[in-house]
């Protein structure tokens, strides 16, 4: 039986009626057309579906859509403001911290959550924070450098 869910999605209150077995990831992609979060494994191993739930990174494939009721969900689409990119998004571009781009939305959301909690993480903290996000292209070096760039900027200011 379908159930109603009301939650905050990228800053806006939204509503959906959804079957209980549908995952949050599926709802975001199919109901709200937010396809930034991807399904890479469906088992919480790859992190491509990472979104922020009440500012914490979680695998949207491991959450039932109905559980979203009352929560605050931020997806990669909610990071930028129109044509204005979030600082972290721009830094990913500047450092070439992406290649095929498929892991990128999830990767950025994990890094964003870290920076929200700790604006000046160490390299080790960055590595640990994104180790639940698999990337097959970059070898991770430029991703870590991009996040550390922000950390260093925050440290300087």
């Amino acid at each position: 039986m379908k159930r109603d869910v009301c939650f905050i999605l990228n800053g806006e209150p939204v509503k959906a009626s959804i079957e209980p077995h549908v995952t949050l990831l599926h709802m975001l992609r199919e109901v709200f057309d937010l396809t930034g979060a991807k399904e890479g494994c469906g088992g919480g191993e790859c992190g491509a579906c990472t979104v922020l739930v009440n500012n914490k990174p979680m695998n949207a494939c491991l959450i039932l859509a109905v559980e979203a009721d009352g929560l605050d969900i931020l997806t990669v689409e909610g990071l930028s403001n129109g044509l204005e990119l979030d600082e972290l998004q721009q830094t990913f571009i500047d450092h070439a911290a992406l290649q095929c781009g498929y892991c990128t939305p999830g990767m950025i959301m994990s890094a964003k959550a870290l920076l929200m909690k700790n604006p000046t993480p160490t390299e080790d903290q960055v590595v640990k924070a994104i180790s639940g996000n698999l990337c097959r292209c970059t070898g991770y070096k430029k991703i870590v450098e991009a996040v550390m760039d922000i950390s260093n900027r925050n440290l300087g200011s």
Partner: peptide, 18 residues
Amino acid sequence: NRVDGVKKVTGALKYVDD
């Protein structure tokens, strides 16, 4: 910079499953 950067960091790029 990569010319496909913006589409990729915003999640706007549509892959086939999207």
